[in-house]
């Protein structure tokens, strides 16, 4: 594995770093990391900007809007903004800043984009039903030894493994 050179950090070292960030989050704020929650905030404020009355009457959106709290001024939105900046800094530092579509040479760019949108939509939908994504439900949940964390983790990775064969052409 080290033959690849040192383009990326050793995965175990990167895991240690990520674990320490997660631990710092628990120690400082009592909560773990998250990502899909911030995307939800974007959607909720978008819907509420288009039609405020509709958003307030919906059982779903109304949970996240009230007079004293703005969905975009939330912990997760700021945290994901940090991910964006942190990813950029790290990419710049390691010389990886480049516009690029990553895919198997067997498929076209158009197909890759279409699959990315479908995959994203499924992930977005699933994260709302399952109360969190790989970060908020699985990673964070596993660190606190919560059952929900382990169940979501196994469901995500189990399904991805089970379906891997059917989508192999997209990746290898």
């Amino acid at each position: 594995m080290e033959k690849k050179g040192n383009k990326y950090m050793n995965p175990y070292l990167a895991g240690l770093l990520l674990g320490l960030v997660l631990l710092a989050s628990f120690y400082l704020t009592g909560r773990g990391l998250g990502a899909s929650g911030a995307m939800k905030s974007v959607v909720v404020s978008g819907v509420s900007a288009v039609n405020k009355d509709y958003a307030e009457s919906s059982h779903y959106y109304s949970k996240y809007i009230s007079d004293d709290k703005k969905p975009m001024k939330s912990w997760l939105v700021l945290e994901v903004f940090g991910v964006l900046v942190g990813g950029f800094i790290s990419g710049a530092f390691s010389g990886r800043l480049k516009f690029k579509i990553e895919k198997s040479p067997k498929i076209t760019n158009k197909k890759r984009i279409r699959l990315a949108i479908i995959g994203g939509a499924l992930f977005g939908f699933g994260s709302q039903l399952g109360r969190g994504c790989t970060s908020g439900a699985a990673l964070t949940g596993m660190a606190t030894l919560s059952i929900a964390g382990y169940v979501v983790m196994m469901a995500i990775f189990g399904t991805a493994f089970a379906l891997a064969y059917f989508f192999r052409k997209n990746w290898i």
Partner: peptide, 29 residues
């Protein structure tokens, strides 16, 4: 929810956190 996310993972190739991070360095997908 986890099963749907698993499908999204293998089809789309990212999860929400990693997609934000990848978008930050210019990955168009």
């Amino acid at each position: 929810g986890g099963v749907i996310m698993g499908g999204g993972f293998i089809i789309g190739g990212f999860c929400p956190g990693t997609s934000v991070c990848a978008a930050a360095i210019g990955k168009i997908d």
